[in-house]
Simulated scan of single mutants.
Amino acid sequence: MSVDPRNFRRAMGLFATGVTVITVRVGDTVHGMTANAVTSVSLDPLLILFCVDNRARMAQIIKEAGRFAINVLSERQQALSSHFSGRPVEGLEVDFLETEGVPTLADNLATFVCTLDRIYDGGDHRVIFGRVDALTRATDALSPLLYYAGTYRQLEQQQRERLEALDRIGYAIASSLDVSEIFETFAAQAAQLVPHEAISVTLLSEDGRSLERFALAAATSIAPRAGERQLLDESVAGLVVREGQTIWTNDMASDERFRGENDQRWIAEGFRHFISTPLRARERVIGSLNILKRGDASYDEADVMVAEQIANQIAIFLDNMYQHERIRRQTIAREHPLIQLLTDTLHALDDAERDIHDQELLSVSLQRARSLAQRALSTVESGAS
C-alpha cells in the first residue's frame, strides 16, 4: 500500500510541536533557520537533534561552524519564526545575544547551546545531532509558540471556537430543512473559521456527468448563479468530485488544473486562494464545497481540515433533505399517480434540454418524455371514463 506524501505531511501536521530557531555564526555572519522537527535524544550524554531539508544550506553552515544554538520560541516571538523561515518581516530588528560564544535570540522560552556531534542522512533531510554544552530557561511565565496543522496556534481558544461554530451548524441541521436558512448558517459559521470571499456548494447530477451549483454566497458580481450547470471536466470542483479528494492551492493562476471557463472567471476577478473538498453521503461523493478568497493571506492545512468538517455537515444535511424529499414523492406517487407521471415527464424534458448537443442522448430523453406523457394521458382518460 503506497502512502501519498501530501497525506503523510498533513497527518504529521496533526502532531502539535513547539517552534525553534537554529542560530549559528560563520565568520562575521549570523545565520538563522526556523525548525519544528526538534527532539531530545539522550540524557547521558546530553544530545538533541533537529532535521534540515537537503535543499537548505544550514547543514553545511553548521558543519563549518561546529557549534550552534536551538532557541525555543514563546508565542510573543511568532514574527521571528516567520522571519527565519524564508518570509522576512519588514522592519523587524533581531537582537542577538552571545551565549557560550554562540549567537542566540533574546527572550526565549529556553536556549540550548550545542557542539555538533554528528550528521546523518534521512531521506530528503539531514538529521543533525548536537551535544548540549549549556542551556537557559525563561524566568517569566511565558506561553509557548505552537505549530499545528500547518499554522501557528493558541490551541485551546481556537478549538473552542471551532466546536462552537460546528455546534451551531449541527443545531441548524437538526432544526430545519429550509435550504436558504441552512446555507446562511453554513456560510456565516464558515466565515468565522475559514476566511473567504466566496463559498459555494455544487452537486453531482443524476447522470453523473455534470455539476449543478446548489447554493452560493459571494461578494462579487461574476459569481455563477445557483442552478448553473457545468460538465465535470470544466472545473477543478469536477475533478474533486471525480477523484473524491480535496484540492487546495494558494496560486490559482499558475496551477495547471485551473483551466476551465468557470475557474478562469474567478482568476480574472483576482481570486488566488482556493479549497474544494468532496461532499460524501453514505460512502458516495455527491458534490463539493468550494471556498475562495483574494489577498495575500494563504490557506493552510488547518483551513483545509475545517473545510472538510464543514463539508461533512453539509453532506449530512443534504442527505437528510434528499431522504425527506424521497419519502414525500413516494407518498404523492401512491396518492396522486398523475402528479407523479407529470413530474417525471418534466424531469425527462429537463434531461432533454441538457442533452440538446448530443443527438443520441437527446433522442433517448425525448422518447422517455413522450412515453411518460402518453401514460399520463391514459391515466386522465381512465379517470374520465
Rank of each mutant, 00 (worst) to 15 (best):
R9N: 10
G13A: 02
G13S: 07
L14R: 15
F15L: 10
T20Q: 14
V26N: 15
G27Q: 11
H31L: 04
T39A: 15
V52L: 02
R55H: 14
M58K: 11
G66H: 08
G66S: 06
N71T: 09
V94W: 09
F96G: 02
T99Q: 14
P103I: 01
L105E: 04
N108P: 04
R118I: 04
D121F: 03
D124G: 06
R126L: 07
F129K: 03
G130Y: 07
G130I: 01
L135W: 09
L135A: 08
L135K: 09
R137T: 11
T139A: 06
P144W: 03
L145D: 06
G150C: 02
Q154S: 15
E156Y: 13
Q159D: 10
R160F: 08
L163V: 04
A165T: 07
I169H: 05
Y171M: 07
Y171V: 09
A172D: 06
I173V: 08
E181K: 14
I182K: 11
F183M: 11
A190G: 10
A191N: 10
V194F: 05
H196G: 03
T202N: 15
L203G: 01
S205I: 00
R209W: 07
R213M: 04
F214D: 09
A217P: 11
Q230G: 14
G244M: 04
D251E: 10
S254H: 14
R257D: 13
F258H: 03
N262M: 13
R265E: 00
I275P: 03
S276K: 05
T277G: 05
P278W: 01
E283S: 08
G287E: 00
G295N: 13
S298N: 13
Y299A: 03
V304F: 08
N312V: 06
F317Q: 13
T331A: 11
L338K: 08
A348P: 01
A352Q: 01
Q359V: 00
S363I: 06
S365H: 08
L366W: 10
R368Y: 08
A373D: 03
E381K: 14
